[in-house]
Computed example of a mutant assay.
Amino acid sequence: MMAQQTFESYKPIISMTLLQQILLMGPDEFEIVDTVEEIALWGINLEGVAGSFAL
């Protein structure tokens, strides 16, 4: 059974700054996450990396 999510515990599925970047792009463009700063800013977890950890 899933715990009930409250307003205080709500976290968007996608970072609002990442969504903003995506919406500013054209239909033939895509965002490439290529820096550690972007990974940390957008709350992305890396998987499959030896010794991986959440930033």
Rank of each mutant, 00 (worst) to 15 (best):
M1E: 06
L55I: 11
N45W: 06
G48M: 05
S52C: 13
A50R: 11
A40P: 02
D34Y: 01
N45S: 11
L19Y: 15
N45G: 01
L24C: 12
I13Q: 09
L19H: 11
F30Q: 06
E31P: 07
F30W: 13
S52A: 13
I14E: 03
L24P: 00
A3F: 11
S52K: 04
S52H: 14
I22A: 14
I13E: 10
E8H: 00
L18A: 13
T17Q: 14
I22Y: 13
W42N: 12
L18G: 13
D34R: 05
F7Q: 00
K11I: 08
F30L: 15
E47S: 07
A50V: 11
K11N: 09
L18Q: 15
L24T: 08
A54N: 11
Q21G: 05
W42H: 15
I44Q: 01
Q5W: 04
A50I: 14
Q20F: 07
I13T: 06
K11L: 10
I14M: 02
T17M: 03
I14P: 00
G48Q: 10
E38P: 04
S9T: 14
M25R: 11
S52V: 03
E37L: 13
E38S: 12
Q21R: 13
Q4Y: 15
V49C: 02
E29G: 04
D34A: 06
P27V: 04
L18D: 03
I39V: 15
E8Q: 01
S9R: 14
G48I: 05
P12H: 12
L18Y: 13
F30P: 08
S15G: 03
M16Y: 07
S9A: 15
T17L: 11
M1F: 07
E31A: 09
M2C: 13
V49T: 05
I32Y: 02
E8M: 00
T35E: 06
I39Y: 02
P12Y: 14
D28T: 08
G26E: 01
E47C: 06
L46Q: 00
L23N: 15
L19W: 12
E8S: 00
M25D: 01
Q21F: 04
S52P: 00
Y10H: 13
L23E: 14
Q20R: 12
M2I: 12
L55V: 08
P12D: 09
T17D: 12
L55Y: 06
T35V: 14
Q20C: 05
L24H: 03
G51K: 05
E31D: 12
N45M: 03
M25P: 01
M25H: 10
Q21M: 10
D28V: 08
G48F: 07
L41N: 15
I32A: 09
